[in-house]
């Protein structure tokens, strides 16, 4: 499963109603560290295929979602379990940390 693009329109279905844990990467095109984080998130998505759903939220296109979760720094990784945001990490994270967050 490829990394999903999450928007306010599919957020309910793909994230809140997801049976699997979901990891979201909040990013923007002008953010250097986001570029560094993106391939790590992609690799993580590949490794956890079928176990963890991974999505990216472009905060310029989805300001409502960024606002709703109080994102004030990017990249931010946010983990959802059973429709609840349970853990977040600000800044570029090593892949191992993403594993820990979704255990």
């Amino acid at each position: 499963m490829a990394v999903l693009t999450i928007t306010k329109d599919n957020f309910q279905k793909e994230v809140l109603e997801s049976a699997q844990p979901v990891l979201l990467d909040f990013w923007a095109s002008w953010c250097g560290p986001c570029k560094m984080f993106s391939p790590i998130v992609d690799e993580f998505a590949e490794e956890r295929e079928g176990e963890v759903k991974v999505g990216k939220v472009n905060i310029d296109e989805e300001p409502e979602l960024a606002n709703q979760f109080g994102i004030m720094s990017i990249p931010t990784a946010l983990v959802f379990k059973n429709g609840q945001a349970v853990e977040s990490a600000v800044g570029v994270q090593p892949k191992e940390r993403l594993w820990d967050m979704t255990k």
Binding site: C31, G32, P33, M72, S73, I74, S88, G91
Partner: peptide
């Protein structure tokens, strides 16, 4: 407060 007002990257945040 990191990511909630405290930042180490001005061009990012």
């Amino acid at each position: 407060l990191t990511g909630r007002g405290v930042s180490y990257c001005a061009t990012c945040d």
